[in-house]
Simulated assay, not measured.
Amino acid sequence: MPVYFLYQEGHGPDRIKIGRARRVEERRRQLQTGNPDRLKLVGFINADDDARLERDLHRHFAEVRGEFGEWFNLQPADVLPVLQRFHGDAFVGKTADAFEIVGYDRDGIPEHVGVWEWGDLSLEECCPFCGCLGGLHFQEASWMYHCLACDTLTNFEDDTRTAPEP
């Protein structure tokens, strides 16, 4: 079961909830109900022993535990090293289509949405399609980049990519 990190951004202090759920997005929506501040998925770790990992993370961040149990006074960048430590089993939250062009700079170079609002990660560190911190790996045989987690193949030359059928 995934251990997740949800970031509450809003008018109060920045907080991150460390919890676990089978369906992370469904859990985010449940917690969002009645919460005036927006909740964003920072990332999650697929863990065999999710209860132990959650407990260990709660101990690790005990000094910054907030007043509401599983909520901690943290910024997304504070949990990035934890997510990176679990690289192959960890995923970061994505903002949108990472390659959506949102404008052009004064030299005519396209500006993209970006994958992560809070982290500056390279393709080798993180897949822009699924958020896996295992990254994209360049395959010389096909001259394409491949993600082991989502099995996407792309060369970034055009807007096409191949992914397996669901």
Results as ranks from 00 to 15, higher is better:
Leu148Ser: 13
Val3His: 09
Asp89Val: 01
Phe91Lys: 10
Ala96Ile: 00
Ser122Thr: 15
His112Gln: 08
Glu140Gly: 01
Val24Tyr: 02
Pro76Leu: 08
Pro166Thr: 06
Gly10Lys: 13
Asn35Phe: 07
Gln30Arg: 14
His60Arg: 15
Leu83Ala: 03
Leu53Gln: 02
Ala51Phe: 00
Arg15Phe: 06
Trp71Met: 09
Phe99Lys: 08
Leu123Ala: 11
Gly34Leu: 12
Ala90Phe: 10
Glu124Met: 10
Asp78Ile: 02
Pro36His: 08
Phe156Tyr: 14
Gly114Asn: 07
Gly103Arg: 06
Arg29Phe: 01
Arg27Thr: 05
Leu53Phe: 04
Leu136Trp: 03
Pro2Trp: 04
Gly114Leu: 02
Thr33Ile: 07
Thr95Gly: 05
Glu124His: 13
Phe61Thr: 02
Met144Phe: 00
Arg59Trp: 00
Ala141Cys: 00
Leu133Arg: 05
Phe44Cys: 12
Arg55Pro: 03
Leu83Met: 05
Arg22Phe: 04
Phe86Lys: 09
Arg29Trp: 03
Leu148Asp: 13
Arg59Asn: 06
Phe44Thr: 03
Val79Asp: 00
Trp71Pro: 06
Pro81Gln: 08
Gln8Pro: 02
Leu39Pro: 07
Ile18Glu: 02
Arg106Ser: 12
Arg161Leu: 09
Asp158Pro: 04
Asp37Trp: 06
Asn35Arg: 13
Ala21Gly: 05
Gly43Tyr: 04
Phe156Leu: 15
Arg52Ser: 13
Pro110Glu: 12
Arg28Ile: 12
Glu70Gly: 11
Phe72Lys: 06
Pro128Asn: 07
Glu157Val: 00
Gly93Asp: 02
Tyr145Met: 12
Leu80Asp: 04
Arg22Pro: 00
Met1Pro: 02
Asp151Met: 13
Ala47His: 02
Arg106Asp: 11
Thr95Asn: 01
Phe86Val: 05
His87Val: 03
Ala21Phe: 01
Arg20Lys: 15
Val115Ala: 14
Gly43His: 10
Gly131Ser: 04
Glu100Pro: 00
Cys127Ile: 12
Val3Ile: 12
Cys132Arg: 10
Leu6Gly: 04
Phe91Met: 10
Gly66Gln: 01
Thr152Asn: 08
Ala163Met: 14
Val102Trp: 04
Asp151Asn: 15
Glu100Val: 08
Gly12Val: 04
Pro166Lys: 09
Leu41Phe: 01
Ala96Arg: 08
Ala77Thr: 11
Cys132Gln: 11
Phe156Gly: 09
Asp78Tyr: 01
His137Met: 08
Thr160Val: 09
His112Thr: 12
Ala141Arg: 10
Gly108Ser: 08
Arg59Leu: 09
Leu74Lys: 01
Arg161Phe: 15
Pro164Met: 07
Glu157Asp: 15
Phe68Pro: 00
Gly108Pro: 08
Ala77Gly: 00
Tyr7Ser: 03
Phe86Asp: 05
Phe61Ile: 10
Phe44Asp: 05
Arg161Val: 00
Trp71Ile: 05
Gly134Tyr: 04
Asp120Asn: 14
Val102Tyr: 03
Asp48Gly: 09
His137Ser: 14
His112Trp: 11
Asp120Tyr: 06
Phe156His: 09
Gly93Arg: 09
Gln84Cys: 07
Trp71Tyr: 12
Pro128Gln: 05
Asn35His: 11
Gly12Met: 09
